[in-house]
């Protein structure tokens, strides 16, 4: 039983990273119906920006807390700029034309981000500075590191802020309106372009946070990281019900847990098969995902 709880703690940590990235998929899907293949790679960009900031600090032995906060902030800002640029140049001109064409440009941006990272940082694995101690505490025989606790709490905080933002602020309401009907939202005098930008901004901030934490937690990053994370996060978003914000959070955590249990009890090599098999079964039983709502069609 102890091992079970241990796997749960590990799964929860990974799951909270997935949830942050899944939120980006779900927000962007919600407002413009695009499966943004470049989003996972944005997480990778965040991880590399964090690495770039942290390495000199680690070498200079600055206070760890300051270094990490700085890395997070710079990564968030950089990813936001990148994401807005992608929106502006690669997606916006096609928004009213063809969704499939946008999906192809998204694949293009994914290739672009991966190859940029490959070019700048090389094809090897980059070690993240070892800033996070392995110290921890015991809760009834289960070992939880301070890092795990901090990452899960920070992820939870970000998600809570996002949830409150979408639920209660004017911009958040505009975003939800946009998800339902673009034309009606425009007619209500809402600057649709701006709301879309905010959506991309939020997605980028969460992805960057996830990227930096992934680097710190796992200790190493590669240019290919985005694909792996993106695949799981996208799966999480669909599992929870794509377009649904609490759904993405639930989906992320569920995927993290499933993976951890599978790696613990079965075999690490079959993780992906296991996760996808669960996804397919869930979708067959509930075609709209765990929390997704049925979309009624008007005849």
């Amino acid at each position: 039983m102890d091992t079970f709880f241990q796997y749960t703690v590990n799964g929860l940590t990974a799951g909270s990273f997935y949830a942050l990235v899944a939120l980006g998929y779900t927000i962007i899907y919600g407002i413009i119906r695009l499966i943004n293949f470049a989003h996972g790679d944005l997480t990778m960009v965040g991880a590399f920006v964090g690495w770039t900031v942290l390495v000199p600090f680690a070498l200079n032995r600055l206070p760890v807390g300051v270094a990490i906060v700085l890395a997070l902030v710079i990564a968030m800002a950089f990813c936001s700029l990148v994401n807005l640029a992608i929106l502006q140049f690669a997606y916006k001109p096609l928004l009213k034309k063809s969704m499939l064409a946008i999906m192809i440009t998204a694949l293009g941006m994914s290739i672009l981000l991966q190859n940029s990272a490959l070019l700048i940082f090389g094809s090897g694995v980059d070690a993240y500075p070892d800033l996070v101690s392995t110290a921890g505490f015991m809760v009834a025989n289960i070992r939880v590191t301070f890092a795990q606790a901090a990452f899960v709490l920070f992820s939870g905080l970000l998600m809570l802020v996002l949830y409150l933002f979408v639920r209660y602020t004017t911009l958040g309401i505009a975003m939800r309106a946009l998800a339902i009907d673009h034309e009606a939202t425009r007619l209500m005098g809402i600057d649709v372009d701006r709301v879309i930008q905010i959506g991309f901004l939020l997605g980028a901030v969460l992805a960057a946070a996830s990227g930096v934490m992934i680097g710190l937690y796992y200790g190493q990053i590669t240019y290919f990281l985005g694909f792996l994370i993106g695949l799981r996060a996208f799966t999480a978003a669909v599992l929870g019900g794509i377009g649904n914000i609490p759904g993405a959070m639930v989906g992320g955590v569920v995927i993290g847990l499933l993976e951890s249990y599978c790696a613990g009890y079965l075999s690490g090599a079959w993780q992906d098969v296991f996760v996808f098999a669960v996804l397919i079964i869930v979708l067959i039983v509930r075609p709209t995902g765990i929390l997704g709502e049925r979309v009624a069609e008007r005849m």
Partner: peptide, 8 residues
Amino acid sequence: AVALVVLM
């Protein structure tokens, strides 16, 4: 990648 995006 750039060519792909431009083409689209």
